[in-house]
Design a protein around this nucleic acid. Structure first.
Length: 242
DNA sequence: GCCCAGGGGGCTC
DNA sequence: GAGCCCCATGGG
């Protein structure tokens, strides 16, 4: 009888690897996966966003929605002249709602954007850069205290806007690494994040690119139903192949 | 017409 | 704290 693991990993991960350092072994594996994706896509140059404010807005708008829809919403906001902190802060809910309809849940997301803006205005005088001078862990705690910002959104803002090394995981990460046989289905966000951060050198460009590449695999090949395993560059390492 | 797509909050027990 | 529901558009 094997004892169920509490770290969300499949129990057979390190079988036959007793003479190897598990961390080194896993690190090699993670970098191998990374290199396969990088070779396929090339550097992806994420996060899409011209300013740190735009990155924060995108991080909220992309919740549970594909990036294509977010781009339309961002375009509308830009056209309406709302992609500056003060302008969006002063805008009415109705105007913001109209702009972000393509990003779905537009009323909820307007509330979330406003909550974020209000927080930055009240606590940091409206200066994102000032908020980002906080160290990574206290910044994360602060962001998680804002209405509408959960772990993934907080981590996206920390990595892509504040440029601090934190590994962003999402449903793509979970699906891909479950199908690769590395995560169990019931793995939690924190377990996944720990897994990567214990095995990858804390480097902003690496974390940035890794998440971007996983996103590419996720929406190009690794959909819930009808995944395109035949065409997927990771299929040789994957045991999901159908 | 149906299904699904990069989350998070709120409620119940 | 797990398990549910809600939000609510647009493309395939």
């Amino acid at each position: 009888m094997s004892v169920p693991r509490e770290d969300g990993l499949n129990s057979n991960r390190n079988e036959g690897a007793d003479n190897l350092n598990p961390a080194e072994n896993s690190d090699y594996e993670l970098m191998h996966i990374f290199n396969i994706m990088l070779e396929y896509f090339g550097p992806r140059g994420w996060w899409p966003g011209e300013t740190i404010f735009e990155v924060c807005v995108g991080a909220i708008l992309t919740q549970s929605v594909s990036w294509k829809n977010v781009m339309k919403a961002i375009g509308n906001l830009k056209k309406a002249g709302l992609l500056e902190f003060d302008d969006m802060y002063m805008a009415s809910d109705e105007v913001i709602e109209q702009c972000i309809i393509p990003a779905m849940y537009y009323r909820m997301k307007t509330k979330k954007l406003k909550a974020f803006l209000r927080h930055v205005a009240e606590k940091h005088n409206g200066h994102l850069v000032k908020m980002f001078t906080r160290d990574r862990d206290s910044l994360r705690k602060e962001l998680l205290g804002i209405y509408g910002i959960g772990p993934e959104t907080a981590d996206s803002i920390i990595l892509y806007a504040a440029q601090k090394p934190i590994f962003v995981v999402d449903t793509y990460t979970k699906r891909i690494f479950s199908r690769l046989g590395i995560f169990k289905e019931e793995v939690t966000y924190d377990q996944m994040q720990d897994y990567f951060m214990k095995r990858l050198y804390p480097d902003v460009p690496l974390y940035n690119e890794y998440h971007a590449l996983l996103t590419g695999i996720g929406n190009r090949f690794c959909s819930i139903k009808k995944p395109k395993c035949i065409e997927c560059p990771l299929n040789e390492k994957c045991n999901y192949l159908v």
